[in-house]
Design a protein around this nucleic acid. Sequence first.
DNA 1: CGAAATTTGTCCGTATGTATG
DNA 2: ACATACATACGGACAAATTTC
Lengths: 247, 247
Amino acid sequence: MEGDVHFEEGTPLYLQVSRHLQRLIASGSYPVGTLLPPEADLATELQVSRHTVRQAIAVLRRRGLLQARKGVGTRVAAVEDDWRTRFTANTRGDLFDFASATELHIEKRDMIEARGRLAAEMGVRPGRKLYYMAGPRFMSGDSIPFCFNEVYLDPRLKPVVAEIDVLRVALFTLVENHTGDRVEEIQQEVRALHMPELAASYLGRAPGDLCARMTRRFNGSGSRLLEYAVQYHPGDTFSYQTTLSST
Amino acid sequence: MEGDVHFEEGTPLYLQVSRHLQRLIASGSYPVGTLLPPEADLATELQVSRHTVRQAIAVLRRRGLLQARKGVGTRVAAVEDDWRTRFTANTRGDLFDFASATELHIEKRDMIEARGRLAAEMGVRPGRKLYYMAGPRFMSGDSIPFCFNEVYLDPRLKPVVAEIDVLRVALFTLVENHTGDRVEEIQQEVRALHMPELAASYLGRAPGDLCARMTRRFNGSGSRLLEYAVQYHPGDTFSYQTTLSST
DNA sequence: CGAAATTTGTCCGTATGTATG
DNA sequence: ACATACATACGGACAAATTTC
C-alpha cells in the first residue's frame, strides 16, 4: 500500500497501526462495506506480528469502525471523523456535541469533603476535598432546564472555573487544557431513582418523582480522577441509547 | 485458592477465568481497593498462560471492575454490588456472556399484532404480526428473578422456540442459526419508569414502583428487525454502566 | 539519590480450533 | 473435502513505571 507505519517513537506499535488503518479507512482506501486484507497479510505488509495487527483491529472494533467475522474477514463498518471525537463512538449523543448544544448555568459552588456513599461511588478516599459546582442545564435558547447537573473537581482547578457562570463546552476539555493531563477513560452509569429534593427544585418537579441519574467519572492517566459529574433527568424526558458493536 | 477453572467445554478459557475472578471479587476474596495477585501468579495458579489471564482481566477492566497500573498491579475498583444489581453489556459478546449466566423462564406465549406505541418503538408497521414470549429471568441457581423479560420475534421463528421452556443462551444466537441472518447491530435503550403491573407481579413488587426498562432491537443486514426484547428491572437493583475508552 | 526488584505493557513467534465459502 | 481467515491459547522476551531497599 504505502509502506510501513513506524515513525512515532513513544507510542505503542499497535496504536500506530490502528491509526494507520483508521487513516486508510477515512481516506477511502478501504471503503465502507469492503473487507480489510487478512490479518496475516496486514502483518507481513506492515512488518509487524499478527498479534499486533489484532490489537490494532481490536481498538477499531471497540469503536464500532470494524466488524470481524470468523471465516470471512474484517469488514469496514463505518468511517470516523477525528480521533479526538472518538469517546462517542459508543454513545449515541456525542459528549462534545451534547455540551456545545447545551448550557450549564452554575448556580452553586462549594468546597466539600467526599464522605460515605459519595466517596465510594466516586472511588476516592473518604475525606478528600473537592470543589463542587451545580446548576441546571438548558438546551441552547431554551428557558426550561432539562436536567440538573452536579460536578466535582480537584480543588486545584477552582481558579479555572471560578469565574465561569455559563458553560457551553464540555468541562473536561477545560480540565485537560489546564492540567495537561488527558482524559483517557470515561466511566458512565445510568440508574433509575427518585428525584432528590435539590434536583426537583431546579427542574420544577416534586421530590420523589421518577428520575434518571447519569454519572460520569473522567479518568486521567493511571485512573486518576479528574472530574466527576452527575446529571439528574426527569424520568419522562430521558432515555439513554447505545448501539452495540459486534463481538 | 480453590483449584482450577476449566470445566465448561464450549466457552473460551479467558471468559471462564474472567468469571472466576468476578466470583472471587463478588465473594470478597479480593476486596475492593486491594490488589489482585500478579498476572504471572494467577497464570501459574490457574494453570493458564499469562496471555489468557490478561484477556480475562481486560474483560473486567472494560466493565470498570478492575484498574491496572504499570509497575503497581491490578486493583479491584468495584464490586458489582451483588452483581445482579449491575447490568453491563458493552459488546455483543458481553450480551452472550450475560445470557449464559442467567436463565429465562418462558411462561407466556402469544401471537400478537404490533400497534400504536409498541409498533412505533419497535419501528415496525402497525398491524405486523409478532410472536410474543415473556417470563422472569434468574441468575443461574437463584430462586428470585431479577428482571422480567419480554421478547418479540418474527412469527416464522415460532417453531424454533415453541418447545423451549428455559433459555440459557442468548436468544439471538438461536435466531441467527435458524434464519442464517446475522445480527449486525444491537440498539439499546435504558429508561426509568413506573413498574407495569405484569412485571411487578413477577418480580414481587408493587405496580408503580421504581423501574428501569432496557429495550434491545436486534437488527440483521439492512436494519431488518430480527428480535425485540424488553427487560424490566426493579429500580433499586439496576444500573447500567459503560466505559468510554480512548485507546 | 541510585540500584534492584516487582509488575504491568508491548511485541514476537507458533500452534490449533472453528466458522465460512 | 478443502482452503481461507478469524479466535483462542501457549511460550518467551524486553520495555516502562513504580516501589523498595
